[in-house]
Design a protein around this nucleic acid. Structure first.
Lengths: 148, 148
DNA sequence: GCTGAAACGTTCACAAT
DNA sequence: ATTGTGAACGTTTCAGC
């Protein structure tokens, strides 16, 4: 993971479909040399894969919310993961420090749908209660810290 | 945005570097037909672009936190966006309903670095106080609701 | 790491439906 | 309006250096 790797990764974050020739032109390397590095980065898990960045609203997901989850008793993170992975509308979930045990990001079509998802979240594990905050606007949207 | 578009988008979320021929084989379309659809989806903004999915830990980002921000007085979302966009470690920020005015996701190298980022966040706008929750584990990590 | 060459993918104009 | 075909061009992906 040298400086060349970091530059290639930064370029691939900006354009995940950039050709090896284009990447090579930016970092002064031949296309095969770039490919070998990208293959190695994929192998090492530095780059997990490539994906399309989709506008959720275009798919009808117009309501976004964060749900703080307070559990009752001891529940393993693995049990929570298993329960929430099966709920399609749960896009992200983390266990966290502080008063709530977990934080969930939910995408729903509307508030009515959100309420229905919250019921499924609560019934999927022995949960004490939840606190929901609806997203008003997205101010910053990156996956990793800004670089260049 | 018909069913064929949705299937192509789902395939591109799974593999953002899939060739048009591969996509076409899955949806029974020729490569040029798939390309025209993808070009249109990009044009319409349904697909915003393509990116590499990178492991933050591989880049040294081993500490993740969510920061609830309580503002003092009236601050425009635009002012908050401008202030936080300039902080590299702020990967995401949303204005939300409920007690806090905003929620921020931060990636830092360690807890010491996180504390330093929090200082920058607080001094970047007229903020009353913040409440930070450090991420213990990531249970679910998707961008959009699961589909297939 | 580079080069060369074959296989493969992309991207266009054009015809078909 | 959208698709498939064919051909030119660029890219990928080897092996050999």
């Amino acid at each position: 993971m040298d400086d060349l790797d970091r530059r290639i990764v930064a370029l691939l974050i900006r354009d995940g479909r950039a050709t090896y020739a284009e990447l090579g032109a930016e970092v002064n390397l031949s296309a095969p040399a770039v490919k070998r590095r990208v293959d190695r980065l994929l192998d090492e898990g530095v780059v997990r894969g490539f994906t399309a960045v989709v506008d959720p609203a275009a798919g009808g997901w117009r309501t976004e919310a964060f749900v703080e989850v307070y559990c009752s008793g001891a529940i393993s993170p693995e049990a929570l993961r298993h329960a929430w992975e099966g709920i399609a509308e749960v896009t992200n979930a983390w266990t966290i420090t502080g008063q709530p045990d977990a934080l969930i990001r939910v995408l729903a079509t509307d508030v009515r749908h959100l309420e229905e998802v919250l019921e499924r979240i609560r019934s999927a594990a022995s949960i004490d209660h939840t606190e929901t905050a609806i997203v008003l606007s997205t101010l910053v949207d990156r996956r990793v810290p800004a670089s260049g």
